[in-house]
């Protein structure tokens, strides 16, 4: 029988957040926002807001400074990022080994490891928060176009096939 790896702590944190938010499918209640990452959501059922909208409501900035490798590892390395993304990046850091995150002795090896972990987290965040929605959107688009214009919908619309480059001239 196929076996999955045991659930990670992130899943347990997600459960905790769902309980806090009061629903398993939370999303920001501000129209047009669409933020649905539990890491970036605050409040409770019927009044869930993303962190950025909560900040805006309270008159605080919606961009924040992020230490990718952590304050202990590289206090000078700072980037400015959207507050929601900052919450997500910080949550990734919870899964880092305690030693790497704290680096009490200032070990260069752990500092390098932290830098590499933060780089990996960036990629994961890009994949999860930027690419994943686009992928889902493209696949939904394919279904919709297929339904409307048939399986070779691009030909019907006179568009080139982007993979082969062949097709009708624009």
């Amino acid at each position: 029988m196929t076996k999955r790896l045991l659930p990670s702590n992130a899943e347990a944190r997600a459960e905790d957040a769902f309980e806090r938010l009061g629903t398993r499918s939370p999303h920001c209640s501000v129209p047009g926002c669409g933020e649905s990452d539990w890491r970036a959501l605050t409040g409770a059922y019927l009044n869930i807001k993303c962190y950025e909208h909560r900040c805006a409501q309270q008159g605080r900035s919606t961009v924040e400074r992020h230490h990718p490798a952590g304050r202990k590892n590289n206090p000078k390395m700072e980037v400015t990022m959207a507050a929601n993304d900052h919450r997500v990046m910080d949550d990734y850091k919870v899964d880092w080994p305690e030693e790497t995150r704290r680096n009490p002795e200032g070990s260069p090896a752990l500092r390098a490891a932290a830098n590499l972990r933060s780089a990996r987290d960036w990629l994961v965040m890009i994949a999860e928060r930027l690419l994943a929605p686009v992928i889902a959107w493209l696949e939904a688009l394919e279904k919709c176009m297929r339904k409307r214009h048939g399986p070779r919908w691009w030909e019907a619309l006179g568009l080139p096939n982007m993979l082969t480059g062949r097709g009708a001239e624009l």
């Binding site: 769902f18 309980e19 009061g22 059922y45």
Partner: peptide, 15 residues
């Protein structure tokens, strides 16, 4: 309580 108004009770997870 958080989920006592209007929401369906938070059932178990997929596990």
């Amino acid at each position: 309580t958080t989920n006592n108004e209007g929401s369906a009770p938070l059932g178990p997870s997929d596990y």
